[in-house]
Write a protein that binds this DNA or RNA. Structure first.
Lengths: 155, 155
DNA sequence: GCTCTCATGTCAACTATGTTGACTTGAGAA
DNA sequence: TTCTCAAGTCAACATAGTTGACATGAGAGC
């Protein structure tokens, strides 16, 4: 599932820069890894991984979401969702129940255990972000967010 | 290999924020996707994908790198490197030759075709970054880099 | 009541990216 | 000549995704 020592061993490699913006590309890559490293480690200890966390994260923020809506938010196929979702249901981190009036769709919710794991995993990620923002101050944080929004909304 | 329409269809979902820093987590996620979307698309058209690009990117910046060193920089196993690397050699995007004095290791280099593909794929990523930086100005860009460095060096 | 649609569930086959473990090969060094 | 080291290769496996095909069960329309 993961390999702490090996993944952690990958520090920022020093590569010659062919273009001015190469540093930015590498910062995106290592930034993503830096943010997710501890969370993935924690998840691996729980026998879970990134896709499980994505499901938990979304359901935490959209309680009673239907499976179809979850598929849309995650951007994966029904079949790809199936296995991680069933694992979360078996492990009782999620519950699914039919809606009272809309019997067609199943509504998903986190159990207390699911909430705990979602929160702890996300806390690892938030901790990394908080530390970086503290160093940067309010104006640096605002600038970071503005740049990230521009990158995210590019497509 | 990829699915343009489907991946592009995944826009930023609006999720309730349970914590102040949730927006930052989502910006990291969608930022990574925003930066890599067009590059991955281009690579898919060439029958390549992200691991191939990573190899090409590193070899471009470390000409005559040995396979063992490449494994270290990429942080993957020899066996995992094997298939994408052989594809790049077969497609003549990379060359490998024995060192003149150090016959043990093979030295990797990009061919002209390999350089072209590496450059075009990275250009897609740099374009996204350049546009975001232009909007943010020099000070915003500097702030973004400072925050990303803090995130990347967290581990 | 009968049929049609729609959300969900499930099976199979496939691709890609990664892992470990075990073993070979070929060159250089002791 | 033997030892070591870089590289290559084979098997088995895990995970994360894809399409396609088909089943089921509930509501809605006629």
């Amino acid at each position: 599932m993961s390999k702490t020592s090996q993944a952690a061993g990958l520090h920022r490699a020093s590569l010659a820069k062919l273009h001015e913006l190469d540093a930015a590309l590498e910062l995106m890559y290592y930034g993503w890894r830096g943010m997710t490293l501890e969370a993935d480690d924690y998840l691996a200890k729980q026998g879970l991984s990134r896709p499980h966390h994505r499901i938990l994260y979304v359901v935490a923020r959209r309680p009673d979401i239907a499976i179809g809506a979850l598929i849309e938010v995650l951007g994966i196929s029904k079949q790809a969702l199936n296995r991680p979702l069933n694992l979360l249901l078996e492990r009782k981190l999620l519950t699914s129940k039919r809606a009272p009036e809309q019997h067609r769709s199943k509504l998903l919710r986190l159990t207390a255990a699911g909430q705990r794991i979602e929160q702890r995993a996300s806390d690892h990620e938030r901790k990394v972000m908080r530390q970086a923002f503290e160093r940067a101050g309010a104006s640096g944080t605002a600038a970071w967010m503005a740049v990230m929004e521009a990158i995210a909304d590019n497509n």
